[in-house]
């Protein structure tokens, strides 16, 4: 599992209008090309060979599955921001302001009153 790499996906796509458009329109193809050519980039000349997404992680990203991402401990700010970018306008037109954000909360309500999965990248094994 690479929480870091999931966060890197959310970070790099959210800040780039063209990647964001492709992630909205064809997430499966965007996740595949991100893993191939965008995720490994350190800068224009250097690549990293260190990280990869697990199958569960890439499925969660392909499915825009913010519940699964929350449960994996993806950073809450990145996850909220990118899915607002993808869904807020359509929800707003159909169901009014904040309707997407409230549905997002509703789908996570089984976490109410519990300790959320940690967003820390390093965690000690449960004892």
């Amino acid at each position: 599992m690479s929480k870091y790499y999931v966060n890197k996906f959310l970070f790099t796509v959210d800040r780039d209008p063209e990647l964001l458009r492709r992630y909205k329109e064809d997430p499966r193809s965007l996740v595949a090309s991100w893993e191939q050519s965008i995720g490994p980039k350190l800068n224009d000349a250097e690549i990293s060979t260190v990280n990869s997404l697990t199958d569960l992680e890439s499925e969660a990203l392909i499915n825009h599955d913010y519940v699964a991402l929350f449960e994996m401990g993806a950073h809450f700010f990145l996850s909220l921001t990118i899915f607002i970018a993808i869904y807020d306008e359509d929800y707003m037109a159909k169901s009014g302001p904040l309707s997407f954000q409230r549905e997002f909360a509703e789908k996570l309500k089984h976490w109410n009153g519990k300790d959320y999965p940690s967003i820390a990248l390093w965690q000690a094994a449960a004892r």
Partner: peptide
């Protein structure tokens, strides 16, 4: 709360 069950109440 951001990106969790208690957001936007």
């Amino acid at each position: 709360e951001l990106g969790g069950p208690r957001q936007f109440k």
